[in-house]
């Protein structure tokens, strides 16, 4: 626990309150295949001296947390002062990267999590009522979306929904609109990502709930049938309460997973329409930019975000546990 969880978090925290030293820049001459030009470069010796003095970098406290790339405190205050109403305020807020990413991430989390639970539960009920010989085959089949690696799964769909792909062309034909493009509209991109999220995650809730269904006490179900409960009433008053701890468990895992949504954004090339904190980290770490402090800050914010999301579920589980104890 100490080595694999506490230490990395501590290191990320440390990184997020430090930035690289001020760069010492010098004017130099660059020569290459296209001639010589005067340019600027970093004075490595002077920079190294600074680094050796303070290897951690420059301490900046919470500056990075509050800058435009993250919580953007100054910008939010300014937007609040300038906006004419709550709608205008939200629209302007959407222009700041962190809040735009949160807008998508929270929408994604709170639509995908319940939908995947509902679908998973329906599939589990369906498969459970099948003949024994059909079950094995169908279980394997239903698990396929989870087996496919997320990046591959999203790439396959990405090509199908291309405006020249099979689904993209079919939609253009159905709506007889040759300009219709799923990838060019923010709303449709969100719908596509959510559909993909449900498709990918439903098998997980299906397999857990299906396992839960095998432990369903038959005598309780039979007494309900004798009492004249309809199929819906049996599900509502016997099956669901029995599966409740499992549903809590799945919701917990999925809230966490969906908050960190990343692969579909890369796979669908949808950074123009939807971003998430995880995507920020990926983007900050790319070659020419390498904003390590910014990436660390986004990681800390992700941890805080996940904790806030999970708090209600954790508190509830804790209470249940105590009540039973």
């Amino acid at each position: 626990m100490l080595l694999f969880i506490a230490l990395p978090i501590l290191s990320v925290l440390l990184q997020s309150v430090h930035t690289p030293h001020d760069a010492v820049l010098i004017e130099i001459e660059n020569c290459g295949p296209f001639g010589c030009t005067t340019s600027t470069t970093m004075d490595q010796e002077a920079t190294r001296a600074l680094r050796d003095e303070q290897p951690l970098g420059k301490f900046v406290g919470l500056d990075i947390y509050f800058d435009r790339g993250h919580l953007a405190v100054r910008e939010v205050v300014q937007v609040w002062a300038e906006s004419e109403g709550i709608g205008d305020f939200l629209a302007s807020l959407n222009n700041l990267p962190f809040y735009r990413a949160m807008g998508f991430t929270l929408t994604f989390t709170f639509t995908v999590t319940p939908l995947m639970l509902i679908f998973g539960f329906m599939i589990a009920l369906g498969v459970n009522s099948l003949h024994r010989k059909l079950k094995g085959f169908l279980i394997f089949f239903s698990l396929l979306p989870m087996i496919v690696s997320p990046l591959i799964g999203s790439l396959v769909l990405f090509w199908m929904i291309d405006s020249r792909g099979i689904i993209g062309s079919a939609l253009q034909w159905i709506f007889s609109d040759p300009d219709l493009s799923l990838k060019a509209s923010t709303g449709l991109t969100w719908v596509m990502l959510i559909v993909y999220g449900v498709w990918h995650a439903a098998p997980f809730s299906f397999i857990v709930l299906y396992a839960g269904l095998q432990t369903l006490p038959q005598d309780t179900l039979e007494s309900a049938q004798i009492d004249g409960a309809s199929r819906w009433q049996q599900v509502r008053y016997v099956v669901i309460p029995h599966l409740m701890p499992l549903i809590t468990f799945i919701a917990l895992i999925q809230l966490m997973d969906n908050f960190r949504v990343f692969e579909p954004i890369v796979g669908f090339n949808s950074a123009a329409h939807a971003t998430s904190l995880s995507w920020f980290i990926f983007n900050d770490l790319s070659g020419e930019t390498r904003l390590l402090s910014s990436a660390a800050t986004s990681s800390v914010l992700t941890i805080i975000g996940v904790s806030i999301l999970l708090a209600p579920v954790l508190v509830r589980t804790w209470r249940d546990f105590n009540a039973k104890g």
Partner: peptide, 11 residues
């Protein structure tokens, strides 16, 4: 604004 935030962080 995005560039300025990043350039400030990099010193």
């Amino acid at each position: 604004a995005a560039y300025t935030a990043a350039a400030r962080e990099k010193g």
